[in-house]
Write a protein that binds this DNA or RNA. Structure first.
Length: 502
RNA sequence: GGCUGAGUGGCAGAGUGGCUAUGCAGCGGACUGCAAAUCCGUGUACCUCGGUUCGACUCCGGGCUCAGCCUCCA
């Protein structure tokens, strides 16, 4: 039985869909005026895993996952002005970049990805309804505001009371508002600002209304799960509830899910603090699957502390899993049984990915233990491990490809490799990583880290094998050290020598 | 000031009213020409003070510390 922690009740609850034939989830995606940072990566990966598990539980065809794009707001306008660039080109660029980042992280596309600017009719219609029902008012300056005092459940999601909020010193006082807590639904356009026509004159939507309009439009007035980062709990999601429930007269969402923050040095990573890393920066240095592993190795509601040390540990851990998989002839049918039951139970328990990953490590040990004595059983367990890993978007690559070092894009000056030595371009090619679709540039980045081609590495290994046959340990060690200096680790076994990148 | 959430072994990170999480690092052993990888063994972990209980890291209460929200932010 799937249990999900509901922010609304602050408890884990059994998840009972409104309609098991169509389980509906809406997640607040990006406001696209810049590259995605690690916080966005966390949302993308966490809710990707939620969607995958819902599909497992209810059937792929019975789940609708909507993740929106907010492509009009003050910061977008500001950024476009700074760049002297039309808004839709700016947002188009960053949407494309977001898709690249998501794909690299193994995030499957949502079923729908609505954009605010393409739902202007629904947005205006909802505001009109709110005005008609007197939940909203037109101010002297032409803006339309939501009247917070009219909505009796205001503050329920975030556990706040209106009096407390008003007492908070940081509420900005705006002469046009009747109450400082009222928030804007429609902003009258100033000169030279992009605008849409509306019953209240040309303008653009305020921040929160687009999500109410898009979610309702895509999923109906009442749906199952609404997710996003913890920082959206207030005011964004609180305001969404106020808007939607006032407009439709129905309960908006049954289960609210919020993922925890990414931190740097025990401090929230955020744009205003300037202490953030973009996904692309991190992918310069770490394999995308390592990033995904790192994210999933903590529970989604816990804080996630980013540091090089933690990333290195994640890489070491993932390498252990792939090492177990290496060299196995995986049968089409996977062993299941106890491991699978525990994996699924962990996922059913509020998407406990660390616990699920622990099961993968237990499989790895079992595989390593049996690999000599019972190779067939080891292979069956390997298939199980890969399949279970795949349920959370891990271990889907060829182990050789992972271990021989596809990703870290350290560019070295000594790079000389030819494209033919590349071997595998699989992961990135499979997912249409468009910015890297130029094979040559991907070859360069993927092979770098050492200036050696796979061919050259194999040659040196062969030379070393000769030396070892002659018991010339000095020469053997010299070659091994030489390769080690290039980041290539050798592993001898009775079956021969294999290598991997450090 | 109001409201959340959290404090687990060297590090990261799950979990449970009494029984090994897991990974990384360390130590001992096996294997190896030596390594690496792997396997076996190994760590008197649960912020603090009270309470409930036969028994609490796990439940309850106080305290301390940390993080977050109350302004844009995933």
């Amino acid at each position: 039985m799937l249990q999900i922690h509901n922010t609304l009740t602050r408890r884990k609850e059994a998840f009972v869909p409104i309609d098991p034939e169509n389980v509906r989830m809406y997640v607040c995606g990006m406001t696209v005026y810049d590259y995605c940072h690690l916080g966005h990566a966390r949302v993308l990966v966490v809710f990707d895993v939620v969607a995958r598990h819902l599909r497992r539980v209810f059937g792929a065809e019975h789940v609708t996952y909507v993740r929106n794009v907010t492509d009009i707001d003050d910061k977008i306008i500001q950024r476009a002005n700074e760049h002297h660039e039309p808004i839709d080109r700016l947002t188009g660029r960053f949407i494309e970049a977001m898709h690249e980042d998501a794909a690299a992280l193994g995030v499957l596309p949502p079923d729908e990805e609505p954009r605010a600017t393409r739902h202007m009719d629904e947005i205006i219609a909802m505001i009109r309804t709110l005005v008609e029902k007197a939940y909203a008012y037109v101010a002297d300056n032409g803006d339309v505001y939501y009247d917070v005092s009219r909505f009796e459940h205001y503050g329920e999601l975030s556990g706040k009371r209106l009096e407390d909020l008003r007492a908070g010193a940081r509420v900005e006082v705006d002469a046009a508002k009747q109450d400082p807590l009222d928030f804007v639904l429609w902003k009258a356009a100033k000169p030279d600002e992009p605008s849409w026509n509306s019953p209240w004159g040309p303008g653009r939507p305020g921040w929160h209304i687009e999500c109410s309009a898009m979610s309702t439009s895509c999923l109906g007035a009442h749906f199952d799960i609404h997710g996003g980062g913890l920082d959206l709990q207030f005011p964004h999601h609180e305001n969404e509830i106020a808007q939607s429930e006032a407009a439709t007269g129905e309960k908006f969402v049954n289960v609210w899910m919020h993922n925890g923050f990414v931190r740097i040095d025990e401090e929230k990573m955020s744009k205003s603090l300037g202490n953030f890393f973009t996904i692309r920066e991190v992918l310069e240095r770490y394999d995308p699957e390592v990033v995904r592993f790192f994210i999933l190795n903590s529970h989604y509601r816990s804080p996630l502390n980013y540091s090089d040390q933690h990333m290195d540990e994640a890489r070491a851990a993932l390498t252990r899993l792939y090492t177990a998989l290496r060299g196995l002839e995986l049968p089409p049918e996977a062993a299941s049984g106890e491991h699978e039951a525990r994996f699924v139970a962990a996922m059913d328990d509020d998407f406990n990915t660390p616990e699920a990953i622990a099961v993968l490590f237990e499989l790895a040990r079992e595989i390593n233990r049996l690999r000599e004595s019972e190779p067939a059983e080891a292979a069956r367990l390997g298939a199980a491990m890969q399949r279970l890993g795949g349920e959370i978007g891990l271990l889907e690559s060829d182990p050789e490809y992972y271990l021989k070092g596809r990703a870290p894009k350290r560019i070295t000056a000594t790079f000389t490799a030819g494209v033919e030595s590349l071997g595998h371009v699989a992961r990135s090619a499979d997912i249409n990583f468009e910015s890297l679709s130029d094979t040559n540039s991907f070859a360069e980045t993927s092979i770098s880290g050492s200036g050696l081609t796979e061919e050259e590495i194999e040659d040196l290994i062969e030379k070393r094998a000769q030396a070892r046959m002659n018991k010339d340990w000095a020469e053997s060690d010299r070659i091994r050290d030489l390769l080690a200096a290039q980041g290539i680790l050798l592993e001898d076994s009775p079956q021969g020598t294999t290598w991997r990148r450090k």
